[in-house]
């Protein structure tokens, strides 16, 4: 991005190389990881396993789409894991009213929490980290109180199908993930909402001078985060055929990791939906591969940490 202003040809050459690395390093890294896993495990490349990976990343992937917007706008949403559990609970509690009502109620509950987050961040002028940390604790508490600490079983057959049925050879929840990521990509790179998100993340004061309605965009961003968390909650609940009040704990960190691996800067203004997609896939492939190889549990964590660091290093070379 900075290349434009440079005149020195040599520097430009050098930068275009590192630019290449930062642009395609992630994809190259993913391919290397993929090939290594394929060599190490004979079952890695089977159709069943590849579909497994996609199914396992769907929940984190959907959350990460919302998180991408928050991070590019120089914000963050720590409440997504808690909202996920809450929405799942709402869906299970309203399942008697029919699948459509339960689904809408669950999504609406996520939208509501996201909207409240956005209001406190903009009208209350509190940093997103603090607001969403507070709402994470609050929502967790409400979820535990409402559920009494017990997991509740999902029985509605239509809702159960969402997590277990296939559309042709592809699980429905993978289709949902694909639609979400495509819509996320369109929203981020093809609409004014996406451009404003980048603008706010790059410089909030400049955006204000340019006449962007910052508060409105931010409220929309956190509402979107809440909605995505709720959708992930619906899918996870359906997959597990029950809503657990402690589901989703730590999911915010998984999403942040995926978005960061995808090349987004936590300082804002940078990031791409395609990057997030590969970030999510890299985390998924590592998790899947280490279990396939039956790697010791302690070593798995060490390897995961190292791979995340390396991926971010390659992606962020500037």
């Amino acid at each position: 991005m900075n290349v434009v202003k440079m005149n020195n040809v040599e520097i430009q050459k050098k930068i275009s190389f590192t630019d290449f690395l930062s642009k395609y390093g992630l994809i190259v890294g993913f391919i290397i990881l993929f090939v290594v896993m394929a060599f190490l495990s004979p079952v890695f490349l089977t159709k069943v396993n590849l579909i497994n990976i996609l199914r396992q990343v769907a929940v984190n992937g959907i959350i990460s789409v919302g998180m991408t917007f928050a991070i590019i706008s120089a914000g963050i949403d720590l409440s997504v894991g808690a909202v996920l559990a809450f929405s799942g609970l709402i869906m299970v509690m309203t399942q008697g009213q029919g699948a459509v009502v339960a689904l809408l109620a669950a999504l609406l509950s996520g939208v509501l929490w996201g909207f409240v987050n956005g209001m406190f961040i903009t009208k209350g002028k509190v940093q997103p980290f603090v607001v969403t940390m507070a709402s994470m604790t609050l929502v967790q508490g409400v979820t535990l109180m409402v559920s009494g600490g017990h997991p509740i079983t999902l029985k509605n057959p239509t809702l159960l199908r969402l997590g277990s049925d296939y559309l042709g050879p592809i699980p429905i929840l993978v289709v949902v993930f694909a639609i979400v990521i495509i819509l996320g990509w369109v929203l981020l790179s093809k609409t004014s909402f996406g451009r404003y998100t980048y603008a706010i993340g790059t410089s909030e004061s400049a955006s204000k001078l340019a006449g962007i309605k910052i508060d409105r965009i931010k409220i929309l961003i956190y509402t979107l985060c809440g909605a995505m968390a709720a959708l992930a909650g619906v899918i996870l609940t359906s997959r597990l055929s029950s809503a657990s009040p402690i589901a989703g704990a730590g999911y915010e960190l998984d999403a942040i990791a995926a978005v960061a691996i995808g090349g987004a800067s936590l300082a804002g203004g940078e990031g791409k939906m395609v990057g997030t997609l590969f970030g999510v896939l890299i985390v998924g492939v590592i998790t899947n591969g280490l279990v396939l190889l039956d790697v010791n549990v302690y070593i798995q964590q060490i390897i995961k940490g190292i791979i995340i660091l390396v991926a971010v290093l390659i992606g962020n070379r500037k």
């Binding site: 079952v43 497994n52 199914r55 396992q56 597990l240 589901a247 899947n288 190889l293």
Partner: peptide, 13 residues
């Protein structure tokens, strides 16, 4: 949720 994912992967291997 994690147990389900882990089990799917064990079943593959």
């Amino acid at each position: 949720a994690e147990a389900m994912s882990v089990m799917e992967n064990i079943l593959t291997a």
